[in-house]
Design a protein around this nucleic acid. Structure first.
Lengths: 163, 163
DNA sequence: CGCCTGACTTGCGTTTTGCGTAGTCAGGGT
DNA sequence: ACCCTGACTACGCAAAACGCAAGTCAGGCG
């Protein structure tokens, strides 16, 4: 699959487009091993600090720091909670933005499953039927987007402001 | 969307599962800003060294180093080519593994588009109809996978070897 | 034959990321 | 009143990632 740039975009230096590119803005988060691991664990339902540390293998300091940035970035919220007959604790839960990150993780999983030869023994399956989960590229009109069907377009300034 | 761990996976420390997890193996590549940028440019059709440098804003040394690892990781190949009346040059082109990376980029783009408030003016659209491109999670049987429909399963050792 | 250009490499400093270890701190249980 | 535990913070250090600047090298042009 390739992406076609239209019009003047094709020739332009992308440097100045920097924060106009949604990939670049999103990958600021992914560009750290720790955040991917933490988001993975959070998607698995992990909520407590200690569990994040234990299950990711990250150190406490890294975990604390990255959880904090994930909270300030709006992917998680830190909430007080209380188990019966226990004192009050804090838990980290995914926000909507955090939940929306899961397709990225699944896309990574799908790629890793296909292209990394070493046998991973974890697979993501559909709870309903047990078949492997895949990410499919479609457009808002429901068409399946094929290999050369993606165009990168420059949004007009007006629409960008209101969108 | 959340991922449900089954059986003993739920309790297990994931540390030892390390290279069993396809997300972790795939994110070794993504965990660098430079690789994401280079793969993005390559998906846009960039092939020449200088263009990678100019369009990503990375330094030459970083570009050279990361292109090399992308080649050894099997996401790109370095091929000689010759423009008419020019001397022989080298170009970097995506392999199948590299092309298969595009859905990850689109998933990132889709997330960035939705959850980063600053107006990005770049959008990915379906060349056929102009509608925005989205990534959809489906299972191999074609069912749309909903919010709580993903299960993480442990593959048996036999199947893992042949799969 | 010397110069230019594209494609790198080399060297150096800075920042970020991460590990390891130790210390803190608040709330509950005993 | 004291201890324990979960949830951190605070060093100090190593490695990786990135930037800046300069140097190299091969092939073609004039």
């Amino acid at each position: 699959m390739t992406l076609q740039m239209t019009g003047r975009l094709a020739a332009e230096d992308r440097t100045e487009l920097g924060d106009l590119c949604p990939i670049e803005r999103a990958s600021e988060l992914v560009a750290r091993r720790s955040t991917v691991l933490l988001l993975r664990e959070a998607s698995y339902g992990t909520a407590r600090f200690d569990d994040f540390v234990r299950r990711t293998g990250l150190t406490e300091s890294v975990t604390a720091a990255q959880l904090r940035t994930l909270v300030t970035e709006g992917l998680m919220v830190k909430q007080p909670y209380r188990e019966p007959a226990q004192r009050q604790r804090f838990e980290y839960v995914l926000t909507e933005a955090g939940h929306d990150f899961v397709p990225i993780l699944l896309a990574l999983a799908s790629w890793g499953d296909r292209h990394r030869p070493r046998p991973h023994r974890l697979r993501m399956v559909h709870a309903g039927c047990g078949a492997a989960v895949e990410v499919e590229v479609r457009c808002a009109n429901g068409h399946v987007v094929g290999d050369d069907d993606v165009t990168v377009a420059l949004r007009s300034r007006q629409r960008a402001a209101t969108d």
